[in-house]
Structures are given as C-alpha cells and as structure tokens.
Nucleic acid binder design. Structure first.
Lengths: 208, 208
DNA sequence: CGCAAAATCAGGGATTCAACTGATTACTGC
DNA sequence: GCAGTAATCAGTTGAATCCCTGATTTTGCG
C-alpha cells in the first residue's frame, strides 16, 4: 500500500515509516502538518493517509475533511492519543475509515490498514465502545455536542466555580445548574471534573 | 548501548526501538509510564534511559530525578515535543544529560546517545538557546514550590484519580494522600481542583 | 549531632458532587 | 399544530472533597 504519513514529530514519523515498511507498505510522503498533508494527498495520490490528530497549522480532523472533499478515494486513518468520544465521532463524520490509538501496538495500525483496504472500518479497542455508546444514546453529539447554555456552564465549572455559584451567576436554581452539569458529563462521556477542564481548554473555552 | 525506552505510546516506542536498533543499540526494556521506567531502570541496568517528558502516573522529569537518585550511573535523555525553557532547565537540574525534541530527525537522538556516552551533554538545536538565555538572565525560573512527591500526587489528581486511588497507586494511606493534597493546595494558594488541573498543565505534568 | 523540611498517618465535620428519576415550560422546525 | 429539544426545577442517596487539628518518622544539611 502507498501510504502518506502526517505527524508533527519527525522522530515519530521516521519510526512509523520503519514499522510500515517492515510490514510491506510504501511510505510515499511525510507531512509535518495538516497543510503539507493536504498538498501531498493531492500530488502523491496515496492509497491511505495516516494522520496525527493534533498538528500545527491544520489539525488532523480538518485535514481529513479536506482530503475527503478533494480526493474521496484516499482512505484516511486518524492516529492519536485521544480516546475522547467527541474526537472519535468527529473523525468518523469527517470520513475517516480508521481511528487508531498511539497507545496500541504497531500491529494495530497494520491491521487497520489491512481491514480498510478491504473496505472495512477499523477502530482501536478502547474507542469502539464510544461509538456503541453514541449509537445507544442516539444523541448525535459529534458536531458541537453542547448547547450554548451548556457550554456557558461548562466554562464556569472549569473556571472552578462551585455549582451554587454557577447558579447564582446565571440566576438559575442550584438544581438546574446541577442538571446541566450532569448532561454535560453524560454527553461528553466524562466522569471527572479534571477531564472537564481539559475538554474546556481544548475547546478554547478556557486558557490553561 | 543498552537503552531503556519510556513513552506512553506503544506505537511510538516500537518505532523508536526500530530506529535505535538500526543504529546498533539494544533496547533492553520498554516502559509505558514513569513508574515502569523506574522499576526497569533498577532491574535492567541500562546504560541510557530515553524518557518521554509527559507520561501518566509519573512524568519524565520526576522519573529522571528518581533514576538519578537510585542509579546515578544511568545516563538520561529527555525526549519530548516541548521547547519551553522551563522544561529544559528542569530537565538539566534533574540530571538529564540530553534533551532531544521529537520534531528533530532520528539522527538527532542517535547523535545525542553518542555524545552522552562520551561524557558530553547534548541539547537539540532549538533548546540550546534556552539555556544560554537562562544563563544570561540569571533568573532561575526552574524553581517549583512543590516537592517531587507533591508533584507526583498533583499529577495523579489532575489526571482525575480520586484520592483513594492515588493512595493505592503510591502505596500510601488515604489520609496521607489527602494531606499531600491539602499541602499542595495551600502552597499554591489554590482552592479548586480545576485550578489544580490548569497549574498541572502549565507545569507540563499533564497534556490538555 | 540537631534542626528543618518532607513524608507519613489519623479523626472529624461541613460542604459538595455524582447519579439517578421525574416534571414543567418555552422555542423551533416541519 | 405537534414533535423535539432546550432550559428550567426538585428530591434522594452515597461518595468524595475541603479544611482543620494533631502526630511520628525519615531525610537532608550544616
């Protein structure tokens, strides 16, 4: 398979190249950010693009959307460290055929490539559950899962305000604030305040 | 050289292993977090430990400090994506002999190992400037009010572990963990977990 | 050796949170 | 108009947190 590799860490790219070539694939190009990946996807016409999720200039998700728009025949695998449900669902919506965790063995990536070439979809163990949950919940939360009100409350929570203060600030009852909080956590599949803070930071609701 | 590899992404470890072995080194062990790295450093007696900076349970910096304390003969290289001056200085203070950026070529890591075995210190291009600046400024900003133990506990808390789990992971009593937590909050003048998370992220103990 | 800081452990009380179930009102889209 | 979603409010239970007070042991350093 002709593979395009995109990751902002050159040392990681080189390592991945070694792993892929050992498995019999050809790495036709290496990109250090989403823009490069986009350009290379057009010019090199790879069979598969393996994209890191967090890259400078253009992240893996948006790069995937663009590649899919311009060259729908290129299969896309997101390779990342994030297990968050939101990312997984967004990736699938963006048309990615695979979502592989960096914490998995290289074997997992190889298998993903094999399955995807057969027309299958591949998800690393550990994220498949997210998709099942989302299906069962039926709450389509891939694109901007939270309502404006919920985002507002999330931000206050992440800023460290206790629930009763959130309620006071928004002129709503304590119970309502608590209810929103529950919904947010349920939607995001998050069970700790700490993960909430990281999510808020990632969403740009908050500065570290 | 007998090398110990520590990075929380298995797929990255496997890639690095390939690169190092191609360069004639032997990877005697792979660790997925700071704790494992510590254990392996003791049992496997590697010549060099290559540590990722941000790892769960115990980060690369604190792992480096511990390894240095227990086995000063093991040379340590921090391998990371962060160019921030603070990290570089802390790494050097922790006794690391090398600071290599993941954005560099694999060649850079190989060269670092070679230089360090000769007794030299190696810094990736791009971070050397930080050290010079720090020397010129003379403002010692590697300072961190927290003790190593406290940082370790802060990291676990920020990762979302409840106190009793922190205690279990460190083999200390629930009350001790709680006590550390209090001290941390008191020292930092912080009263919410959320601010703790942001502090941990700023300190690089944790990824957003 | 002796001081100071760090790390360990313990109890108790007030507050807060998580997770559920269940309900009413209002706006929006088809 | 009617369904769906958002936003609002309420109660309960068990768990976890924050903050205080105290104590012992280990460790590092002069």
């Amino acid at each position: 398979m002709r593979v395009l590799l995109a990751d902002d860490h050159q040392i990681v790219r080189e390592g991945l190249r070694g792993l892929l070539e050992k498995a019999g694939h050809t790495v036709v190009g290496e990109a250090a950010n989403g823009h490069e990946a986009l350009k290379m996807a057009r010019t090199l016409a790879p069979d598969i693009a393996v994209l890191d999720l967090s890259m400078p200039l253009l992240n893996g998700l948006d790069a995937a959307r663009e590649i899919r728009r311009l060259s729908p025949e290129i299969k896309i695998i997101l390779l990342t460290m994030y297990t968050d449900r939101g990312y997984v669902l967004q990736a699938l919506k963006a048309g990615a055929k695979g979502y592989v965790l960096k914490t998995q063995a290289a074997e997992d990536l190889i298998r993903a490539i094999r399955e995807i070439c057969r027309g299958e979809v591949y998800l690393s163990p550990g994220v498949a559950a997210s998709v099942v949950d989302a299906y069962l919940d039926k709450t389509d939360e891939a694109a901007d899962p939270l309502t404006p009100r919920e985002r507002q409350i999330l931000q206050l929570i992440a800023e460290g305000k206790p629930t009763k203060e959130v309620a006071a600030l928004l002129n709503i009852s304590f119970k309502t604030a608590e209810s929103h909080r529950s919904h947010i956590m349920k939607k995001l599949g998050i069970h700790e305040v700490t993960a909430l803070v990281r999510y808020a930071i990632q969403q740009g609701l908050l500065r570290p």
